[in-house]
């Protein structure tokens, strides 16, 4: 079932970051991970964020997802200014409007796949849309494994469960931090295809940090970061073009 939760084109962008600066430490030891990053992420877009290590890509994601507070600058999630929110409002906003997928250790070992998927929703106290749950579970292809525990699932299967969990609350943005980093090429491809399909079928906005040019090629566009700045943008990326650009960055 392909449902689009994309409202008319005149809507707000899913996410806007303005002049984001993030400094760690103080004085002479200060490290500037982000030196003023501004970008807009439209609804239903799939963006890959890339750069050499130390470029600030993980920091950007964390600030944008409300997991870290920028030193200065603004993060707008739709019309909510994330950077102004305090706990517990921040956590509540996050669990309703932001999904997050990690590279590894995504699932609670004590719970079954189904329980893991439902957990954020239950933490928020909302009611579960059964039809939507079924749709997602089928989309990620885990209908037969709902009652297994993480220990009984392969790496790829665990990521599928993590994706389903991220999608269930119908978040405005889903962030993925190196989601295929721990997987073999074939499984990685399956996961990337799945992620692509969520954008195409459900209109999900997706922002993915990766170092893999192949993974980046699944996205609509790529942001290249270096030394805390956005240094380049690439639309309709191919794996080769991305790889070439990356090499030039590292030089």
């Amino acid at each position: 079932m392909a449902t689009s939760n994309v409202p008319p084109a005149t809507q707000l962008p899913a996410l806007t970051v303005t002049d984001l600066v993030r400094t760690y430490g103080r004085g002479r030891q200060a490290v500037q991970a982000l030196r003023g990053v501004s970008e807009t992420f439209p609804v239903g877009s799939f963006t890959a964020v890339m750069g050499p290590s130390g470029s600030g890509k993980s920091t950007l994601i964390q600030c944008a997802a409300g997991l870290d507070r920028p030193t200065s600058g603004k993060v707008l999630l739709g019309d909510v200014e994330l950077s102004r929110l305090r706990e517990p409002k921040l956590t509540k906003t996050r669990r309703e409007h932001i999904g997050f997928i990690f590279q590894a250790f995504n699932l609670l070992p004590a719970l079954t796949a189904r329980q893991n998927i439902l957990l954020p929703q239950r933490l928020a106290g909302g009611r579960v849309d059964r039809a939507w749950l079924e749709a997602i579970v089928e989309q990620v292809g885990m209908s037969a494994h709902l009652h297994h525990r993480p220990a009984e699932l392969s790496g790829g299967q665990q990521q599928r469960v993590a994706i389903a969990r991220a999608l269930l609350p119908r978040p405005r943005v889903v962030f993925a931090d190196e989601p295929t980093g721990a997987l073999d090429t074939r499984t990685a491809r399956d996961i990337l295809t799945l992620l692509r399909s969520t954008v195409d079928s459900f209109g999900q906005t997706l922002i993915m940090v990766t170092h893999d040019p192949v993974a980046a090629s699944y996205a609509d566009r790529v942001l290249f970061l270096a030394d805390g700045h956005i240094v380049d943008r690439m639309l309709q990326p191919t794996a080769d073009a991305v790889a070439a650009r990356l090499t030039r960055l590292e030089r």
Binding site: E87, P88, K92, R95, F100, N106, L123
Partner: peptide, 16 residues
């Protein structure tokens, strides 16, 4: 602590 961190990241408040 890792388990608690994961819970926090998927939306549990520290109080929860």
């Amino acid at each position: 602590s890792r388990e608690f961190a994961l819970l926090r990241l998927i939306g549990a408040t520290p109080q929860q």
